[in-house]
């Protein structure tokens, strides 16, 4: 009898330690993933996908909630987790860097613990299908001749990746981006409508906004900011093939509050790296036209430092610098 009780106890203990993933006492309460935007937006959907996958695959032994904290281009949500502990994560993107460079926020990536870069989209430059510009070179030469002769559609705000990737492209051709006329639309969709209606000459936007239109033969994508050609769009060259030294990811990642312990960082590294390996994550990426871009906590930290340097440079050249 005693033996049986002992056995049960041992089994029970084993079960306990198993579920707490190697004896680590983390997490001790509900996990919160902050989407620093309203429900339905890109950040919100990223947060909800991460929540769903961590739950479905039993990766995290706690309830996971998604909390929406919109405002200030991410500022409100990020500020919110700054004072929290390692149970509170937030979705981020390059806005974390640019907000500070544009002078709209005091926060930088150093105020947080980067946990992972999850995925990326690529940037595209597109013209109407009947446009006189057949290649990136045609277009850039026209900008060189007269930067105001072609209007550029961008949205929803200056200083975002759409805008800055364009800045990086034109300055390679020695065109001062400050002299280019940008029409700033409310969102990526409006930019595409403007292009289809012929109200702008070229748009710079995420690939996913114009991919369908390109396939339908309504617009022509002149170049993509990826390293290699993208699956399904084999006819579209990359910037590098067109002779510009540009690889411009439009990444999104996840981070935690500052001062996380080694163990906590290791915990999330393990869980998130497992998550991105699942088939479901592959499907999420496919649906969103994202590409795998996983970097763990320490890689992400280094990546963010490099990115900050690049963005600093681009923001200054764009004329938006402080």
């Amino acid at each position: 009898m005693k033996k049986i009780i002992l056995l049960i106890c041992i089994l029970f203990l084993a079960a306990c330690s198993n579920s707490a993933s190697g004896g680590n006492d983390f997490p001790t309460k509900n996990v919160e993933i902050v989407a620093p935007a309203s429900p339905g937006g890109g950040w919100d959907l990223t947060a909800r996908s991460v929540q769903k996958l961590l739950n479905d695959n039993n990766l995290v032994d706690a309830n996971i909630n998604v909390v929406n904290k919109p405002g200030g281009g991410g500022e409100v949500g990020w500020q919110y987790i700054q004072s929290k502990d390692a149970h509170n994560l937030a979705i981020n993107s390059s806005l974390l860097i640019t907000n500070n460079l544009l002078g709209t926020s005091d926060l930088t990536h150093k105020d947080f613990t980067p946990l992972a870069t999850l995925a990326t989209e690529w940037q595209a430059l597109a013209v109407p299908v009947d446009s006189e510009f057949k290649s990136l070179e045609d277009l850039m030469n026209q900008f060189k001749k007269d930067p105001k002769s072609v209007k550029v559609g961008v949205g929803p705000a200056l200083g975002n990746d759409d805008h800055l990737s364009f800045v990086q492209a034109v300055r390679e051709y020695d065109v001062d981006p400050k002299n280019v006329d940008f029409l700033v639309y409310e969102g990526g969709g409006d930019v595409v409508t403007a292009l289809l209606g012929g109200h702008v000459g070229v748009v710079t936007t995420s690939l996913s906004e114009v991919k369908e239109q390109h396939l339908a033969g309504k617009v022509r994508i002149l170049a993509i900011s990826s390293e290699e050609r993208v699956e399904g769009l084999e006819d579209v060259p990359t910037y590098q093939e067109e002779g510009l030294d540009i690889v411009f990811p439009h990444w999104r990642g996840i981070m935690g509050p500052p001062d996380m312990t080694e163990e906590e960082i290791a915990y999330w590294d393990e869980k998130l790296s497992e998550m991105v390996k699942t088939d479901q994550w592959q499907e999420v990426m496919k649906n969103n036209d994202w590409e795998g871009f996983y970097k763990n906590s320490s890689e992400t930290k280094k990546f963010l430092e490099e990115q900050t340097k690049l963005y600093q440079d681009l923001v200054n050249d764009s004329g938006l610098g402080q």
Partner: peptide
């Protein structure tokens, strides 16, 4: 709605 549709793997558009 567009955001939710994309999550479900539908991409509304000319196609």
């Amino acid at each position: 709605m567009l955001g939710a549709l994309i999550m479900l793997g539908i991409r509304p558009g000319p196609m």
